[in-house]
Amino acid sequence: MAGDQKAKGKKEQVKGKAKEAVGRAVGNERMEAEGRMEQSKGDARQAKEKAKDTFKH
């Protein structure tokens, strides 16, 4: 389960970076903002899973 969540967080980060880059390239501020938001969600998910791992061990 934790591995799934870590992978999901990483996927959100990568997808967000790509969306932000495309938004910047085409001049779409909304897409850029959505990309940053997805990256933030991925970062938060990764941090939560790392904290869980820390308390497990």
Results as ranks from 00 to 15, higher is better:
Gln39Tyr: 05
Ala21Met: 11
Glu34Tyr: 03
Glu49Trp: 00
Asp43His: 06
Met37Cys: 05
Met1Glu: 11
Gln39Glu: 14
Arg24Tyr: 04
Gln39Cys: 02
Lys6Leu: 15
Phe55Leu: 08
Ala18Ile: 09
Lys8His: 07
Lys56Ser: 08
Glu12Asp: 08
Ala33Val: 13
Lys19Ile: 11
Glu49Leu: 05
Lys6His: 06
Arg36Asn: 13
Ala2Ser: 14
Gly35Ser: 04
Asn28Ile: 11
Lys11Ile: 12
Ala7Tyr: 01
Ala44Gly: 04
Met37Glu: 12
Lys48Asn: 05
His57Asn: 08
Ser40Glu: 09
Val22Pro: 03
Lys56Val: 04
Arg36Gln: 14
Lys11Trp: 07
Gly16Lys: 00
Lys50Ala: 10
Ser40Thr: 14
Thr54Met: 08
Ala21Trp: 10
Asp43Ser: 11
Glu20Thr: 07
Thr54Arg: 06
Ala2Glu: 08
Gln39Ala: 07
Lys56Asn: 04
His57Ser: 07
Ala21Phe: 04
Gly3Met: 10
Lys56Glu: 03
Glu32Asn: 10
Ala18Leu: 15
Met1Ser: 15
Lys8Arg: 14
Asp43Tyr: 07
Met37Ala: 10
Lys50Met: 09
Met37Tyr: 07
Gly27Lys: 12
Gly3Cys: 07
Ala33Glu: 15
Lys19Ala: 03
Ala2Ile: 15
Glu12Pro: 00
Glu20His: 10
Met37Lys: 15
Lys50Ile: 06
Gly42Thr: 04
Gly3Thr: 10
Met37Asp: 03
Phe55Ala: 02
Met31Asp: 00
Glu20Trp: 02
His57Cys: 00
Glu12Leu: 15
Ala33Gly: 07
Ala44Asp: 03
Gly9Met: 00
Ser40Leu: 14
Lys11Asn: 11
Gly16Thr: 05
Lys52Asn: 01
Ala33Lys: 15
Met37Gly: 01
Ala2Thr: 11
Glu12Met: 09
Gly42Tyr: 00
Lys8Glu: 10
Met1Cys: 12
Phe55Asn: 01
Asp4Leu: 14
Arg24Met: 13
Glu20Gly: 03
Gly35Asp: 00
Ala25Asp: 12
Ala44His: 12
Thr54Gly: 01
Gly9Thr: 04
Lys56Met: 08
Gly27Asp: 07
Ala47Met: 09
Glu49Ser: 02
Gly42Cys: 05
Val14Met: 13
Ala25Ser: 14
Met31Leu: 11
Met1Gly: 14
Gly42Ile: 02
Ala44Asn: 06
Val26Leu: 11
Asp4Phe: 11
Ala51Leu: 06
Asn28His: 13
Ala2Lys: 06
Ala44Leu: 13
Asp4Met: 11
Gly35Glu: 05
Arg24Leu: 07
Glu20Lys: 10
Arg30Ala: 10
Ala25Val: 02
Thr54Ala: 01
Val22Ile: 14
Glu29Gly: 01
Gly9Gln: 00
